[in-house]
């Protein structure tokens, strides 16, 4: 099993590394759209989330197109983050939490009991609101999870560390102090390290849970730019309550709202139509700043 995965990931790594090189040469705003898209689409059908008897999310439907950025927006407390963490089944770890419906990542319903959680967590990476690097050195933060997943070859690992750090733009800043404790980095650098750590496991889908809300504006802009560059190699779903940010970087928007006590998705579509021609009255009010 592991052998197969590592073979596949070795193949993928060749491709993504080509991508990385290209991206390093290309100016940051242009996307290498000619590349073949390998990232899978994600699709949620009638997903409900319950915490014991409390319904947090009711019958959510959402399509996350492959290789694009979808932003989940809405006021705080409407269950955006809960919905996000169903996709890599982090909800499994919360006692009393129950998810029903169907979540398709590529051609697999990951809510099915036969899902290999280990494979899923590698396929679907996650970046949190608070930057959470481990209290280890910068390079160890990346090396340690790789080792855990059976990638031990020194040269491969070192190459991978350099490549992901380059991809998140940290390499020039930290290459002279890779042995330093990661907690000494600034908030923005920590968050980029977390993204690098996530990329090192070669996911195809990345979930961002308000990745910029704990950062200052400058660091926030850097991380935003970085997220934009992740497409079309990765399918990105991000939660944010910053509408301007969503408008800047997302290709698609889904609006989450509390209705009769539980969260649901009231409208979704591409960014332009949500902002310019919203259908739902709440969306209109929300996107024009009257509500939320």
């Amino acid at each position: 099993m592991y052998d197969e995965i590592s073979k596949i990931s070795a193949l993928e790594s060749d491709q993504t590394e080509k991508l990385h090189n290209k991206q390093a040469i290309l100016p940051p705003s242009t996307k290498p759209s000619a590349e073949r898209i390998t990232a899978p689409p994600v699709s949620l059908t009638n997903v409900s989330v319950r915490y014991n008897d409390l319904i947090a999310i009711e019958q959510a439907n959402l399509d996350v197109p492959a290789g694009q950025i979808t932003a989940l927006v809405g006021p705080s407390g409407c269950g955006k983050s809960s919905l996000l963490s169903t996709i890599n089944r982090m909800t499994d770890t919360i006692p009393g939490c129950h998810v029903s419906g169907e979540i398709w990542v590529g051609d697999k319903n990951i809510l099915h009991t036969s899902t290999d959680l280990s494979y899923l967590r590698r396929q679907v990476g996650m970046v949190f609101q608070q930057p959470n690097p481990f209290p280890l050195s910068i390079e160890e933060n990346i090396r340690f999870p790789l080792k855990e997943h059976g990638i031990r070859d020194k040269a491969t690992v070192n190459h991978m560390i350099e490549s992901v750090l380059t991809q998140v733009g940290l390499w020039p800043e930290v290459n002279s102090r890779l042995k330093q404790n990661a907690l000494r980095l600034s908030g923005g650098q920590q968050q980029r390290l977390c993204i690098a750590r996530c990329l090192a496991l070669k996911p195809s889908v990345i979930l961002f849970d308000e990745p910029c809300s704990a950062l200052d504006p400058l660091a926030s802009a850097t991380v935003e730019e970085l997220i934009k560059q992740l497409t079309p190699t990765y399918t990105v779903l991000m939660v944010t309550h910053n509408l301007a940010q969503a408008r800047r970087i997302a290709d698609h928007i889904a609006v989450c709202w509390m209705q009769s006590g539980c969260g649901c998705i009231i409208e979704s579509g591409d960014t332009e139509s949500i902002f310019e021609r919203p259908i739902h009255p709440i969306t209109r009010a929300f996107c024009q700043g009257d509500k939320g």
Partner: peptide
């Protein structure tokens, strides 16, 4: 030990043993 470490370990699919040995016990 901060829950952030646990969540990161969970999302990266680390094994409990690796988490305990490398993150939890040292911290």
């Amino acid at each position: 030990c901060p829950t952030a470490y646990r969540r990161a370990a969970e999302a990266l699919d680390l094994s409990l043993f690796a988490f305990v040995a490398r993150i939890l016990l040292p911290s």
